[in-house]
Amino acid sequence: MRALSRETTALTLLLAPVTLFLAIFFLIPLGIMAVYSLLEPGLYGGVEWSFYHWNYGRILGWADGFIEEFDIVYLQVLGRSMGLAALTVISTLLICFPVAFWISRLPAKQKNFFIFLITLPFFTSMIVRLYAWVLILRDSGFANQLLEWLGLISEPLDLMFTGTAVIIGMVYIFIPFMFLPIYSSIEKLDMSLVQASQDLGASPFTTFRRIVLPSVMPGVIAGCILVFIPSLGNFVVPDLLGGARVVMIGNLVEQQFLYARNWPFGAALSMVIIAVMMLLMAVYLFRVVKADSNR
């Protein structure tokens, strides 16, 4: 009994830094946002300390009765952002999955080299890297020059400042986030399981579906979550590569905090993003728990 309470004390002490860290850098800011989202915007930014319910109503489309009319424009943006984020997830997954398999089969030296290449972009500022894409995607950029040289197009394609450019940029930025968890789960994959499956008569496709996929699934799901969440809230890529043409929910938040000087509404929009993500995580966790208890 004594040993137990001692263990509990030790555990508490060990967990204290983490708890403190989460509280200071996560819960408190989140709490501030939650409170702000229910206050009246200050005339010059900041908040007025009086309860104000229009922030959430406005997201759902209701007018505040003073200036606006009923309009679900914010929900549309949220929907479109989720679509773009989902497209980013699918694209990065389609690229990373086969590549991760291919790299995992290489000799150690080459393997390390490719891992290095994939993590290399982290050493440079994201803004600089996105500017490189501006040079590639603009009308006289490398992409159009290459396509013209190959004779595939005669007129430059409009790539820059389009949804395509935003997707390309997002995929580019988030590839490492998808690749690394998938790769680590493939690395952990026991090749003797694959051989066992073949040995028992399963075709390569069946082996992939029944043995490989379930084994690497945790990595795939981790990758999807790691890509979806920052994609949904991203505003840097649409700002740079989409101009005002592609608006994601993150851009709306940015606009509220800066140019519209409406912190509470920006906070409310952020809370909606967080709610969407928590909902998705909850669905995932629920499924995992259910799958575990089924065993």
């Binding site: 005339l43 549309q76 943006v77 608006v247 140019y259």
Partner: peptide, 17 residues
């Protein structure tokens, strides 16, 4: 613009979307 900024915000959001 004072409170009128909200109108601009809405117009700009509509234009961007």
């Amino acid at each position: 613009l004072g409170k009128g900024l909200k109108l601009y915000d809405r117009v700009w959001t509509k234009v961007r979307t």
